[in-house]
Write a protein that binds this DNA or RNA. Sequence first.
DNA 1: TCCTACAATGGACTTTGTCCAAGTCAAGGG
DNA 2: CCCTTGACTTGGACAAAGTCCATTGTAGGA
Lengths: 139, 139
Amino acid sequence: MSDLLERLRTRGWRITAQRRVVAEVLDGEHVHLTADEVHARAVERLPEISRATVYNTLGELVQLGEVLEVSTDRRAKRYDPNAHRPHHHLVCAGCGAIRDVHTADDPLGSLPEGERFGFTVLDVEVTFRGLCPRCAAAA
Amino acid sequence: MSDLLERLRTRGWRITAQRRVVAEVLDGEHVHLTADEVHARAVERLPEISRATVYNTLGELVQLGEVLEVSTDRRAKRYDPNAHRPHHHLVCAGCGAIRDVHTADDPLGSLPEGERFGFTVLDVEVTFRGLCPRCAAAA
DNA sequence: TCCTACAATGGACTTTGTCCAAGTCAAGGG
DNA sequence: CCCTTGACTTGGACAAAGTCCATTGTAGGA
């Protein structure tokens, strides 16, 4: 856990109580939290923390590549602390549940040269949509 | 163009001036517009059209499968009139430009059975990110 | 310990989207 | 051709998610 804080410190981050709390929240739960959920959990430990700070800190963590921003949901961005292992997402169209999944081959390679239009392709985000067992049964 | 309106009529849609305008805007431009951009263009032809109607109509078109909703952008949903040809998106991280692209293989097949967790997987959305030639040159 | 640059605060503001009660109108029946 | 009716539209209020900024606070180096 303090791995993360250590990495941040060596990159010149000033470690404040607020940043520590945000990092701990992300590190503690391996789920995909929205900014507001992160804020709610952070407030439990540090009641005065402001929403703006949580947004700032999340943005910085994304910049540093420590956390991934995913927009599987059209409502709010979600933050995925599992940034160092490439993976994709499987989203239930019914209840919104999200699972991390791994594809057989690297999807980056599936884009032929002729379809790149001169772009420098850096990354790919794959979102599978479907119904989880419970929602499929209810339908 | 009136292909679209014809299809809608046969499905019991009441054809109103507003719906016609929205359909025309989408059909006329093969770019990915946000709801607000659709509204702005619709207003040029039909000044009294309201935002709520544009949102409603876009939602209905998505329901009917005539238009795709893409969330490449974390700000607003974009609407892609090219719904009948399966394709994916290449987004420039610099300027936000979007291109439709086609992958060599079907990405749906790249998710192994063991990674499906009992989900009924229906669809997949692939977003490649990178830099367009102009932004790459500027960097 | 003191300073100072960097960080946090909180409240106003913006953007994107939804909701609803009331008014309007497309299209089928007479 | 007009009437009727229920589907459609309207506009404004509301909500959720996120950004901005001037002010206040503080981590960490000298």
